[in-house]
Every structure is written in structure tokens, then in C-alpha cells.
Amino acid sequence: MIRYTLKCDHNHSFDSWFQSTDAFDKLKAGGMIACTVCGSTMVDKELMAPAIRPTRSATATDTPLSSPQSPAEAALATLRAHVEANSDYVGMNFAAEARAMHEGAQPERSIYGEARIDEARALLEEGIQVAPLPFMSARKTN
């Protein structure tokens, strides 16, 4: 995973995580990266410094991620809390779950999860409305 600081054509700055540099390039080329403030898809990477891990003795209050630093980050935290409280996390089964609900095989409900780019594109081509969320799932990867 790689985190980029991004900036839109309206000069809004925000951070986002990507699986790889290639994943960022494919999402950008497909118009699937949008500014978290204004929604513009004219987004580019900004120059950024590498992130350094805190020492093992550091506490959560020592890290800058312990609370939102800007109104945009606070809005994202609120959005994330709302999505997690009102939707079912379906993980990597997102595409199958969304398709089953669209076809009437399962009752409709709010879901969120993960899908590969080709899966998301196929859902959109089938008329199933999906959108990327501006945050990563809270699942543990290690």
C-alpha cells in the first residue's frame, strides 16, 4: 500500500491510499479518483515527504493520526463512522453481493467492501451503481 497526497484543480489537498503506483495510474485514467472536498476528477499527486513510523514507546496520543487535523479529515471521519454504522462490511465479496442484490437474489441493504478495478467496472457496465469510498476498510491485513 502507498499513500499519496493529492491536489485537485481547485487547489484542495487530501491524502488517499492505493495498492500501488500502477493502481493509482489506472484509477486516475478511469476518472475514478475524485477530490474529497469538491468532487473534481482533475487530481494529481503532490510532492510529499516519506512517513516515518513512531518508536515502539510512542503512544497513540503522540501520533498525528489520533484526531482529524482539518475540516476535510473530520468530514471523512464522520462519513466513515456513518458508513460503518449503517452498512454491512462484505469484504472481497462486494461485487458478488452487489450483483445478487441487483438481480433480486438477495434483499437490498447497504453494503461496503472491496472490489478489484475490473470488478467495479463490470458492475458499472451492468448498470449497478457503485462508488469508491475515500477511506480504507478497518480490516487487519497482517
Rank of each mutant, 00 (worst) to 15 (best):
A85W: 07
A85N: 08
A85D: 07
A85L: 06
A85E: 04
N86T: 15
N86W: 10
S87T: 12
S87G: 08
S87M: 04
S87C: 09
S87D: 13
S87N: 10
D88I: 06
D88M: 12
D88G: 10
Y89V: 00
Y89H: 13
Y89I: 01
V90D: 13
V90Q: 08
V90F: 14
V90G: 09
V90R: 07
V90I: 01
V90T: 05
V90W: 09
V90M: 06
G91M: 05
G91Q: 05
G91N: 07
G91V: 04
G91F: 12
M92Y: 14
M92V: 05
M92L: 07
M92C: 12
M92I: 09
M92G: 11
M92R: 15
N93A: 14
N93I: 01
N93H: 07
N93T: 05
F94D: 06
F94V: 00
F94I: 00
F94T: 00
F94P: 13
A95I: 02
A95T: 01
A95Q: 13
A95R: 08
A96R: 01
A96N: 05
E97P: 00
E97T: 09
E97F: 07
E97R: 11
A98H: 01
A98Y: 03
A98S: 05
A98I: 03
A98Q: 03
A98F: 03
A98T: 00
A98W: 01
R99V: 00
R99L: 04
R99A: 02
R99F: 01
A100V: 00
A100F: 02
A100Y: 04
A100L: 02
A100W: 05
A100K: 09
A100P: 10
A100E: 01
M101H: 13
M101A: 05
M101N: 06
M101V: 11
M101E: 05
M101C: 09
H102W: 08
H102M: 04
H102D: 12
H102E: 11
E103K: 12
E103W: 13
E103F: 09
E103S: 11
G104F: 14
G104E: 06
G104N: 11
G104C: 11
G104T: 12
A105L: 11
A105G: 12
Q106A: 09
Q106H: 06
Q106R: 15
P107A: 14
P107K: 14
P107D: 08
P107T: 12
P107S: 11
P107G: 06
E108L: 05
E108R: 07
E108T: 11
E108G: 04
R109Y: 09
R109H: 13
R109W: 08
R109F: 06
R109S: 12
R109A: 14
R109I: 03
R109D: 12
R109N: 15
S110M: 13
S110G: 15
S110H: 15
S110Y: 14
I111G: 15
I111M: 10
I111Y: 15
Y112D: 09
G113L: 04
G113W: 04
G113P: 04
G113I: 00
G113M: 02
G113D: 06
E114I: 01
E114K: 06
A115W: 09
A115D: 09
A115P: 10
R116P: 07
R116Y: 10
R116H: 12
R116G: 05
R116K: 14
I117P: 11
I117W: 10
I117R: 14
I117E: 14
D118C: 02
D118H: 14
D118L: 03
D118A: 07
E119D: 10
E119P: 03
E119V: 01
E119S: 03
E119L: 03
E119F: 04
